[in-house]
Design a protein around this nucleic acid. Sequence first.
DNA 1: GCGACGATTCGCT
DNA 2: GCGAATCGTCGCG
Length: 215
Amino acid sequence: MSSVQLGDISPIEKSIYLNQDILFLAQFFLGKFLISQVENKVCITKIVETEAYKAPHDKGSHAFDNKRTKRTEIMFHEGGVSYVYLCYGIHNMLNIVTSVQDEAHAILIRAVEPLTGIDFMKSRRKIKPIKQLANGPGKLCQALGITREHNGNPYYSAKSLIWIGDNKTISDTEIIKSPRVGIAYAEECAHWPWRFRIKDNPFTSPPAQVVYKFK
DNA sequence: GCGACGATTCGCT
DNA sequence: GCGAATCGTCGCG
């Protein structure tokens, strides 16, 4: 059985989230624990894939050009809270807001590896194969019961419904860097290698490669 | 008020 | 590989 236990995990402290280097943080969070306690169902997972979204200059970011709207407002919050939004009217997407107040940096969690609470995740997803439970941004939210109601959730407290626990850092040589997924509209920004995956981890999301045509 | 669209997923051809 | 699902958000006026 799984050797991971909730009592052995400590939250990553708030100060880490204030780091203004989002490319560092997006890689730092690889391998860390993402814990959901939604509906009193404890699920422990490991983050295996992330993407960085860095306003104001990133055309792929919802907060491009520091656009402040009701939806993006949480991205301007001080780092350490969640940004959850609905995509295509169906799927919730989970982000980690980072950096200092008024600097809208967000890290999209694209895939996690299920460790405990797997039966809860199977039940929410209505599928059996463990590899497909959370290998995509919409899938992991469904598996962990995460919705827009959890927007603004603090990650640095073990009392939160969703929080992030410390674990050993993945070395640079074990990280695959490639262009981000689903943002062809972002023009030159679409090519930036801001998608990060743990090498050889079977729980990362498709597509294996993203190819954007030049305009 | 209205229309267009999306940081995706799934099922079917 | 392709298209539908499905609805909150945003820009326009």
